[in-house]
């Protein structure tokens, strides 16, 4: 395949990755890494470098509109980023001690279960829980433009969410993937934050975690310019389109898309764990 054709095809694939990544809050890497390695036979290290670039591009590209339109909650993001960045730092050290294939399998099973769990929408009663004192003190409660108008929400179970975020960071430090999935699940399932706020806040956060890793991987020579160029431009275009769609999309549909993507991610993790390819 000539460089011209390769660049074009990778750009198209990346566009889809950016679209799905911005809609689900997972970043583009979930789609990109398996496609690059299986379809284009790209070495996994180049694929990881490109994937990190794609996560930052998705995050920053879509976050601009998510933040301005009041979907992402910047306080939730900043508070939880302490946990994710610390977790990522510790995960990088732990990676040499923990058998990553076992970890990948556990994570895979967890994702399969979450794929089932995250399909369910919350009832009206579950949406109107009284505020948690800790969440109030940290000023995490907020509002966002729902389809029917402005909707307020109260954040629940802050300590559980914070711990899960630490786990999300550690996972991404050890496995190089998956932090977005745990972020969305922690906010959606544990903290009971509305789904659109969960995914857009995750989208806002993943850029920071990925930036630290991307710097490290660029320094190690994993980020190839010829490969990253179509990835970055394609993903960016996809994420800009995704951020327009999310605003008008029904939460039920977004949950279904999310569920399918993490199901695929779960199967990926199980496969990698079983065949020792991580």
């Amino acid at each position: 395949m000539s460089i011209l054709v390769f660049t074009g095809v990778v750009a198209i694939v990346s566009f889809v990755a950016g679209l799905l990544g911005s809609l689900t809050g997972l970043g583009g890497g979930v789609v990109l890494v398996p496609l690059l390695t299986i379809l284009f036979h790209v070495d996994i290290r180049y694929a990881i470098g490109a994937s990190l670039v794609s996560v930052i591009a998705t995050s920053s590209g879509a976050a601009a509109s998510y933040v301005k339109e009041g979907f992402s909650n910047i306080r939730i993001a900043m508070f939880l980023e302490i946990a994710t960045t610390l977790g990522a730092l510790c995960g990088a050290f732990l990676a040499t001690w923990i058998p990553t294939n076992v970890l990948a399998m556990v994570f895979g099973f967890m994702l399969l279960y979450s794929a089932f769990l995250s399909r369910k929408t919350r009832t009206e009663a579950q949406r109107n829980l009284p505020p948690d004192p800790l969440a109030t003190r940290l000023r995490l409660n907020g509002s966002f433009p729902d389809l029917a108008g402005k909707r307020h929400y109260n954040v629940q179970r802050v300590p559980a969410g914070f711990s899960l975020m630490y786990g999300a960071g550690a996972l991404s430090g050890m496995l190089g993937v998956g932090s977005g999935a745990v972020k969305v699940l922690a906010m959606d399932q544990a903290m009971e934050i509305p789904f659109k706020v969960s995914t857009t806040t995750s989208n806002f956060m993943i850029g920071v975690t990925a930036a630290a890793s991307a710097g490290v991987y660029l320094g190690r020579g994993y980020v190839d310019p010829g490969l990253s160029m179509p990835v970055m431009l394609g993903v960016l275009a996809g994420s800009l389109l995704g951020s327009r769609i999310l605003v008008k999309a029904e939460t039920k549909v977004l949950r279904q898309v999310f569920s399918v993507v993490i199901l695929v991610l779960g199967i990926q993790m199980l496969y990698k764990g079983l065949w020792g390819k991580i």
Binding site: G61, A64, V67, K68, N141, G142, H152
Partner: peptide
């Protein structure tokens, strides 16, 4: 009536900061 907004008289909306950060991200990207 148990509505979430009655429990939080002042939900935090940092509109100005949100706009500045949004613009920074857009410009950077």
């Amino acid at each position: 009536v148990r509505h979430a907004h009655e429990f939080t008289p002042q939900p935090w909306r940092d509109r100005r900061l949100e706009r500045i950060l949004g613009n920074l991200l857009r410009a950077g990207v």
